[in-house]
Design a protein around this nucleic acid. Structure first.
Lengths: 220, 220, 220, 220
DNA sequence: TATGAATGAGCATTCATTCAT
DNA sequence: GATGAATGAATGCTCATTCAT
């Protein structure tokens, strides 16, 4: 009795919220928005369906909350990246590796993005919170590329947006489509060795491009 | 026979089949497997739900049929590609452009592949017909890369599978994730100019890599 | 086998429709729109909830169908009334009795109208079909009143609409509010003798008014 | 004590009770018992659902409280009516006008009565408090009618209960069914002029009946 | 081959209510 | 007295599928 703040018995609003969000993340990444079942989420969160509506209003509201949390997590990871102290080459290398690591460790993230694009981005468009989580990576990349040109390490001006999108796409696709790729090509890109091999090659492409003298033949 | 082909021809088995498949393709690419509605497919195919079951057995059976048709279409397109008569550089260029064109013109294809990977490739694994449509592109690519090394145009040996997957991934991601990309980066990658710009850069990367002398620093 | 058109086993679309409508009428008159339960209607109709949606689209669609049928039934009853061959007094008497008989025999009808007014007439407004069932009774009444004035039986011009509404209201309220009336006044107006007594008085009022010389004191 | 009446007074039990009852009245008259929502009542009362249960036990308990308050209000109004000092004709006229005024000004009252009759008077039967609020109006009416006969103003003996019910019914129906009446007859009985017109006619009927010599033909 | 009718299980959501503080 | 958190049982409705003709 003197320990009023004793081990919480049942009342745990923050915990309930969190458990629902975690369960929802798992279900939405596994089955998509349409395929996820509200009662499965509630059961996995060890609560009842009503609480889900109590905290998130609707299935779609919960889906948006999952999106928001994932984008926030992604942005906070990137924000911890500091490329300014590295040589341009090392910076690009670190960036490429960071992206690969994130993609490898968060395959559910890819599913969510794919699902969101299936819906034509309807929900990220609707969420003000998601839009606010602007990633600093493009700006960091732009600065790094400029530094590289300044030091002479990089031989050409490159559009940072295009560069960034391509860098992400190379790893994104490999992991996102790993099941169909394995079925058709017979290679399991979730194996560390396979990932090392292809990511090395991709890094080689990127650096080779930056270092190669601008050559009209390239675009031919 | 003279009576069979009587005036009121409502029976058109092949047409009904085809219309169902077309409608199903549209619905599955737009809403995914879970999100697609059987009655919406039947209505769009101008028939009734029962025929759908008559021809394809189940919703999943119809989904597999859509997958099979799309893979067959993709394979037949690639089969028409002849890289042997071109210089290695021109061959790689043509291949890259062909992939970009296909991806651009078949965004629904990407949705279907994403959806199939959401399901961990369950349905391509189950379909014998899909597995038979082995694409010749990797083999062609392997030969081309070898030719390039032989002629001295290309300076290094490259794993054809890794190369192919990366080539596809670069365009796939850009188009597949165009909605979220536009929301976050403000660039619409469905515009021709944006696609030209990024695909040119990507081709530059690929060629730069093949031409650059193998350098231990790259992998660092 | 030769008796293909043998006793219908289960397929009976018209019967299913009718049974649903009948069950819905009972439920809506007993519990109102909000209080009626879709599954109770389906069970009472000896079918399943799905058929209800198959034929009527929604609970509200079914409610409107019930309203439409009731109004159509009411109008068809009134259409069978022929007042032209009777003396004006006899015609008014018959009309009053007809209304009382209808009200007595269709208490559910009153519930439905009360419920519809609770919803501010939203559904009759929405139903084109209901609006088309125009009752001829007001026109018949107007003619009868004019005849009475012409023959000298009735001493004054009366607004037919006001007259009709009052005539209906007198019986409507007595039957519609019979439960609260019994509770507070201790008289059960569903008993034949009670109804005879009050309806006779009401008829007396109506006829006395028509026969009485127009007198400014009345309105004082 | 000096602390109990401290600045921040959030506790207002009587106010909370009253606000809940007011909000409930509005909701029950607008949507009926089944259609009213507990959380909507709590929100409108600017409190939470729990208080509603604290004070009234259940939704039905609250509904009964609303009924009781309305009946009490109605009875207190009637109790203020004094017909004894008027001539019988003036007394009947005043009574008729009083009823019309009350009905016009309390359309929610009619909804509540209709709803209660939909439930077959279950809740008025259950409430001892409601039953105690016996209206004096019938007794006053009986006396007035007797006075009228005594003075010779009224020519016949009339059952006071039947008379009273008919008097109420004439106005009740017109206002209670105003929405369906407007839809079918095109006249809006909430307009003052329409109400004046019909209520004048009704008063004419009532007085004509009382003044007319009892005539066996009336009941024919 | 084609189709309207029928179905049961499941869907997201809301209900009135109670618990714990 | 007052409140946010929690709940189980519905509720209206939709799903993919099958039956009977």
């Amino acid at each position: 009795m003197s320990e009023a703040s004793a081990p919480l018995v049942k009342r745990d609003p923050e915990g309930t919220r969190r458990r629902i969000l975690a369960a929802a993340t798992e279900q939405f990444t596994s089955h998509g928005l349409a395929g996820a079942r509200v009662d499965a989420i509630a059961r996995a969160a060890d609560t009842n369906e009503r609480m889900l509506y109590y905290y998130y209003g609707s299935k779609e509201g919960l889906y948006v909350a999952v999106l928001e949390e994932m984008y926030a997590d992604y942005a906070s990871r990137e924000a911890g990246l500091d490329l300014a102290d590295l040589t341009p080459t090392a910076a690009i290398t670190l960036l490429a590796q960071t992206i690969w690591t994130y993609v490898r460790e968060n395959p559910g993230w890819l599913c969510l993005i794919n699902n969101e694009n299936l819906h034509q981005g309807r929900y990220v468009k609707g969420s003000g919170k998601v839009k606010q989580t602007i990633s600093p990576v493009v700006e960091m990349l732009r600065a790094t590329l400029a530094r590289g040109v300044a030091t002479g390490e990089f031989k050409r001006h490159v559009d940072a947006l295009n560069f960034c999108v391509t860098l992400v796409g190379m790893s994104f696709y490999v992991v996102s489509s790993r099941f169909t790729l394995e079925e058709f090509l017979g290679r399991n890109f979730m194996e560390q060795s396979a990932q090392d091999s292809i990511s090395n090659m991709q890094l080689g492409m990127v650096l080779a491009y930056l270092r190669a003298p601008s050559d009209p033949l390239d675009a031919s």
